[in-house]
């Protein structure tokens, strides 16, 4: 390549970032997620406040909305890749950036850059709300445990977003991608948890759960946060790789 490769990466990354931030729907979804998360945090907190005083974990309650919150990030990921197929934008993308694997990889990178700070802010807002509302009744929490948990939650949400983007790139249509992902995260996976407890830890969402949930003693066969991260990351990487392989082979 005559233009230096590193410059090219910066240029393409810039273009992918610009594509993401100029999509109004993405901001709408993120704002909606933020607001809904606060509403849910409020609901969980008020449900938690009715419980016995002094036994509540702020972290657990602040992050209880994670299960729903991840839906916003799943949508974000799907939108990032499926929006290429609206109005035939993919043709423009590929005539501008014909290096397909490179382009799709950069798109995931750009998505991660956008997601990480937002995931942190949104996850932290829930915990903060719980903290403010419950600081009198709840157990004291240590700052480093809180940071560890929030970093885990951010990582989990980012990996979920990237995984959803990869599935979106594979399926290319918003509706089936949404049905598959929401179906897995909200219906299949919770059911499997009851029916097949032996393998449940190896799904991306259940493994990812251990990235942010403080360990509790009453559960058996749990993963450490590191193991959880590993399993989750492996899933994401596999799906991104598969998406790239198909993307390169397929007619646009």
């Amino acid at each position: 390549m005559s233009v230096s490769s590193s410059r090219k990466i910066t240029l393409i990354l810039g273009a992918e970032l610009e594509k993401l931030v100029t999509l109004p729907l993405i901001w709408l979804i993120l704002m909606g997620t933020f607001i809904l998360n606060l509403v849910l945090a409020a609901a969980f907190t008020s449900a938690g406040l009715q419980g016995a005083a002094g036994t509540q974990s702020i972290l657990k309650i602040g992050l209880a909305s994670m299960g729903y919150l991840q839906a916003g990030f799943i949508i974000l990921g799907i939108l990032a890749t499926c929006s290429e197929y609206t109005g035939g934008q993919i043709r423009t993308t590929l005539t501008t950036i014909p290096w397909r694997g490179f382009q799709l990889f950069t798109k995931h990178l750009a998505l991660a850059i956008v997601t990480i700070p937002l995931a942190f802010i949104i996850a932290a807002s829930g915990v903060l709300y719980a903290f403010i509302m419950m600081k009198d009744t709840a157990l004291v929490i240590e700052i480093d445990a809180m940071i560890k948990t929030l970093v885990g939650a951010t990582g989990y949400l980012t990996l979920t977003t990237l995984l959803s983007a990869a599935i979106g790139a594979l399926l290319r249509r918003t509706t089936p991608a949404l049905v598959v992902l929401l179906g897995h995260y909200f219906i299949v996976s919770p059911l499997l948890k009851d029916f097949l407890p032996s393998i449940k830890n190896y799904f991306p969402d259940t493994a990812g759960y251990y990235m942010y949930m403080p360990p509790s003693s009453d559960e058996i066969n749990v993963l450490t946060p590191m193991q959880g991260t590993g399993v989750s990351m492996l899933w994401t990487l596999i799906f991104i790789t598969v998406a790239i392989v198909f993307y390169r082979k397929r007619d646009a």
Partner: peptide, 13 residues
Amino acid sequence: IIPLAVLMINSSV
């Protein structure tokens, strides 16, 4: 997207 997500989640477990 939005109705699908909201309704699917709200009929989940």
